[in-house]
């Protein structure tokens, strides 16, 4: 009697399993691997814990960023299409008909206007990409092992780990073209990892709480001088990038516990990728990232 009452008490708990269900029918086994095949084809994990920084974004940052990045356009008035001042070869001309026909004066990518300001289009963090290039790996492929383990420890990401099927884990970066005597196509030269959702916010949290405050000569991400061009592709793509030197890596608590296990710590590039696009996108992205307490300085 006492056991049933305690069992039911456990069952009412929202976050506890009382007892694993009894196995009545054994699962089919894969012929090749001899591993059991689950009843459902895909088990997908969604969010598995509350998230402080995500809450902070929704309760505070989203409103502020909407007010800060708002550009007024009269309602009900369609945007004028840009005036075609750049010449093209006549598209009906048999010579140029099926040829690549860009406007004279180069690509207009950097002059693409931002989409209209709407509440749905408020700038938000899409992913964080961490990337490391290892020069020694050109001679010696095993030089990549230490950085791969470092990225695994930093982010906890493994391919499809924890039932998250879109997660690719740590990826090798391979050379794309041949540069005389230095790099060849298909040669592994680095490692990268894409962080989204929970692990993205976890990494951002570690970075701003543990690493950046402990860096001695880091006052903030250096902003470009005011005179720099605002029409380059990087300013309209809504990405904020910066790098950490190898000396900074020991401040990550994940690496601090067993620094000796890594024969060589390498620095990392960190890219904060946001949904901002068009003119002024990088400024919007900086406003967002600084809202997560990443400092910026102007030289």
């Amino acid at each position: 009697m006492a056991t049933t009452s305690s069992a039911s008490r456990v069952a009412y708990r929202l976050n506890r399993f009382g007892r694993a269900p009894r196995i009545t029918k054994s699962l089919r086994k894969d012929r090749a691997t001899h591993l059991p095949i689950p009843h459902v084809p895909v088990l997908t994990t969604r969010e598995f814990a509350p998230n402080r920084l995500k809450d902070h974004y929704h309760t505070t940052l989203a409103d502020d960023l909407m007010y800060l990045t708002y550009t007024h356009e009269p309602s009900g008035v369609e945007r004028k299409a840009p005036r075609q001042i750049r010449l093209k070869f006549d598209p009906e001309d048999p010579y140029s008909k099926f040829r690549h026909n860009p406007p004279v004066g180069g690509s207009q990518v950097g002059k693409k206007p931002a989409p209209p300001s709407t509440p749905e289009d408020t700038v938000r963090l899409e992913k964080i990409q961490i990337h490391t290039f290892i020069k020694e790996s050109l001679q010696n492929k095993s030089a990549l092992l230490s950085p791969i383990m470092m990225l695994r420890a930093l982010t906890g990401e493994t391919a499809k780990g924890g039932g998250q099927h879109a997660v690719e884990g740590i990826q090798l970066v391979k050379g794309r073209k041949a540069v005389g005597g230095w790099i060849r196509p298909g040669v592994p030269v680095g490692a990268k990892v894409d962080l989204r959702g929970q692990s993205m916010y976890d990494f951002l949290n570690t970075l701003t709480e543990f690493v950046l405050p402990r860096l001695r000569d880091f006052n903030g991400i250096v902003l470009p001088p005011k005179s720099s061009s605002s029409t380059t592709p990087s300013t309209v793509s809504g990405v904020v990038s910066f790098g950490l030197p190898p000396e900074a890596m020991v401040f990550f608590p994940q690496l601090e516990v067993n620094v000796d296990a890594y024969p060589m710590l390498s620095g990392i590039h960190i890219h904060f990728v946001t949904n901002a696009k068009g003119k002024g996108a990088q400024d919007k992205a900086r406003a967002l990232v600084s809202g997560f307490q990443v400092p910026f300085v102007r030289r």
């Binding site: 929202l14 976050n15 506890r16 399993f17 088990l43 994990t45 969604r46 969010e47 598995f48 814990a49 509350p50 402080r52 809450d55 493994t158 780990g161 924890g162 039932g163 998250q164």
Partner: peptide
């Protein structure tokens, strides 16, 4: 931080369990 609702508590705990079972 926001205190999770009973539904959130149950949901997170269920998802965390799946994650633990399927983790490498």
């Amino acid at each position: 931080t926001k205190a999770p609702t009973p539904f959130e508590t149950a949901f997170y705990s269920y998802q965390a369990r799946i994650r633990r079972a399927l983790s490498n």
